[in-house]
């Protein structure tokens, strides 16, 4: 199968779906030249640096029958439009009693790792998880980003896709033929029997590398990528933990009130899964500080392969009383 980058795969999803459906509009503050050339000025719109106007206009377009993509670029810029995300996009379907559909895809880059400092580096998805009404994607591979974005472009709800800034150049196998990936279906990226590691976004790649290393010592790691946080595939995670008896959640986002906490909770509050646990569940997350600029500090505040390995060893070593 051919290999393309994560960035190309995302772009292909937009192009293919815009060809399928003419009632589609794209908004971004930067001109996507290829899209403009194929689909024209009316549908491919460049906005001023006005995130609230862009996020809100997507709602008005969607409520008027147009499927809309709004590319916010960095997730930190999305904070400028929080009223439109949280009070409007998330709630309109519900507070109007479901009388209208709002098919919107918001794309934002999350993550850190390139000395972008605090205001250009963040993983804010758990904030959005806490406000019902938005669907949330965290694609980690070229295959996943294309399939998930295509599903988003056929879904009738506001969807936010968080695409890690460190993944854009990552290559992977992507079929040429049409395919979609259903929301709420986690992907078991590696099968294993000793410990379940749920990894989010770019962390999937680090966890897979660690799993490969640990396999040499006979530790069998099952790596689960939820792919969508809303809806979240609780079943696959619980089933895996029931099998392995151990859980580590790895997330680059700050630990407090994060998605990793939700993942641990859904395991420990489920009696059947809880009874199968052989060790305390564990999180490996970003430290609770704004992201620092200088590289040594930046690397220090996020999970790395060493920290992930240590956490897995710790749960494996647990003997109980």
């Amino acid at each position: 199968m051919r290999e393309i980058t994560y960035r190309q795969a995302g772009n292909e999803a937009i192009i293919e779906e815009f060809r399928r459906n003419k009632k589609t509009v794209h908004m971004s503050a930067d001109l996507p030249a290829d899209l403009r050339q194929e689909f024209g000025e009316a549908r491919i719109r460049v906005t001023p640096v006005s995130e609230s106007a862009m996020v809100g206009a997507a709602i008005g377009l969607a409520g008027s029958g147009y499927r809309t993509v709004a590319n916010i670029r960095m997730a930190t810029f999305g904070f400028v439009a929080m009223d439109q995300f949280m009070n409007q996009a998330a709630k309109i379907t519900y507070m109007f009693g479901g009388q209208a559909r709002f098919p919107i895809l918001y794309r934002m880059t999350n993550g850190l790792g390139s000395s972008a400092a605090a205001q250009h580096s963040i993983n804010p998805y758990s904030m959005f998880m806490n406000v019902p009404g938005l669907k949330i994607l965290l694609p980690s591979t070229p295959y996943d980003v294309k399939g998930l974005l295509k599903t988003a472009l056929r879904d009738d709800n506001p969807v936010i896709s968080f695409e890690h800034m460190g993944l854009g150049g990552v290559k992977g196998a992507v079929p040429e033929e049409d395919y979609t990936i259903p929301f709420g279906q986690a992907d078991i990226k590696r099968k294993g029997t000793d410990v379940t590691v749920v990894a989010l976004s770019k962390m999937v790649h680090d966890v897979l590398a660690v799993a490969e290393e640990l396999s040499k010592e006979g530790i069998s790691v099952e790596v689960i990528d939820p792919r969508t946080l809303v809806p979240l595939d609780r079943e696959t995670i619980r089933k895996s933990v029931a099998k392995t008896g151990r859980l580590v959640a790895v997330d680059e986002a700050c630990q407090t009130c994060g998605a990793a906490a939700e993942i641990l909770s859904l395991v420990v509050e489920d009696t059947k899964t809880f009874e199968r646990l052989r060790a305390p569940t564990k999180r490996v997350c970003g430290l609770d500080v704004p992201v620092p600029f200088s590289p040594l500090m930046e690397q220090y505040v996020v999970p790395d392969r060493e920290k992930i390995t240590a956490a897995i060893r710790e749960v494996m070593a647990y003997q109980g009383k």
Binding site: V25, R45, S52, A53, M54, V55, G56, A57, A58, I59, G60, L61, A62, G63, S64, G65, Y66, T68, D83, Q84, N87, Q88
Partner: peptide, 12 residues
């Protein structure tokens, strides 16, 4: 908050 939404309706 209605103003950006109205921009979308007018774009439609």
């Amino acid at each position: 908050a209605g103003l950006p939404i109205a921009c979308g309706a007018a774009t439609a």
